[in-house]
């Protein structure tokens, strides 16, 4: 598979301490990669470096000729009171070069087809605030698709949404991946999302480990990543991360819980 984007010893900073240090990563056509790590570990910065919107202070980011990147931001960063309808939001990504403000008929047809494909048919005239969390996320996936993105970057696509909606989003992403779009997403959700992806990058300012979930979701890697001991069980060949409460006086048994963090919105 051809390399779409290559990061070579990339270090990024917002003016103070580096938030990414010496990161090497190749994103190839057909990849589906999850970036995992604690808050502030540089996941969002990694996505922005891949997109080319943050210039590294050291190292370099190489984009293959002709690669089109689509970026789906965290829903918490979107101004939902902005006066745009669903169709208008998608059409923002239409090709430039027209000297009139309105989109071409072809652009409108294409946007409506994308909305239909994403299960948002008939919602084009709604204001973006009138949608559910999963629908809102799909609007921004639609905007990236209108660009005919060959690489889709998603920042915490399942944060703040329920299990059913998470399944819907992941279903959409697997469909897009099946259609040949390379995907890189960041997530806090080890059991619900990361364990189901073909490839993970464990990030805490630097790459701690990378590979398939069964290779990298191990107690040793997780302790390095989160600074806390975590158990890993196996369920149908997939790793399941277990946070043990054995040492706590008031809790007598272990609980299998998805390792998710409550805080979002940090440029982690």
């Amino acid at each position: 598979m051809s390399v779409l984007v290559e990061l070579e010893r990339v270090t990024c900073s917002y003016g103070g301490e580096p938030v990414l240090v010496n990161v090497d990563l190749s994103v190839r056509a057909g990849d589906f990669i999850g970036a995992v790590g604690p808050s502030g570990s540089g996941k969002t910065t990694l996505l922005k470096a891949i997109a080319g919107v943050i210039k590294p202070i050291a190292g370099r980011v190489k984009h293959e000729r002709g690669v089109t990147v689509g970026y789906v931001p965290q829903v918490e960063t979107v101004n939902w009171y902005f006066p745009v309808t669903v169709r208008e939001a998608v059409l923002m990504a239409r090709r430039g070069g027209r000297f009139v403000p309105w989109p071409s008929k072809q652009d409108v047809i294409e946007a409506d087809q994308i909305l239909e494909r994403l299960g948002l048919g008939g919602l084009g005239e709604r204001h973006i605030r009138e949608l559910s969390g999963g629908q809102q996320q799909r609007v921004f996936i639609g905007r990236a698709l209108l660009r005919r993105a060959s690489l889709l970057l998603l920042d915490e696509p399942t944060s703040g949404i329920d299990v059913k909606t998470r399944h819907e989003i992941m279903h959409v992403l697997h469909d897009l991946h099946h259609d040949g779009i390379a995907i890189v997403l960041s997530t806090h959700d080890l059991n619900g999302i990361a364990a189901h992806l073909p490839q993970l990058v464990c990030l805490n300012r630097e790459v701690i480990a990378s590979g398939a979930p069964h290779q990298v979701v191990t107690p040793v890697v997780l302790e390095k990543l989160y600074g806390a001991p975590l158990e890993v069980l196996s369920h149908s060949g997939m790793p399941v991360v277990v946070e043990s409460y054995d040492e706590m006086a008031d809790v007598s048994s272990s609980a299998v819980i998805p390792l998710r963090e409550g805080h979002h919105g940090h440029p982690g």
Partner: peptide, 15 residues
């Protein structure tokens, strides 16, 4: 389009 995109979502507009 450019002014709308830059006003609504400057980072994604840049990307």
């Amino acid at each position: 389009r450019e002014l709308l995109f830059t006003t609504f979502d400057p980072e994604v507009a840049e990307i």
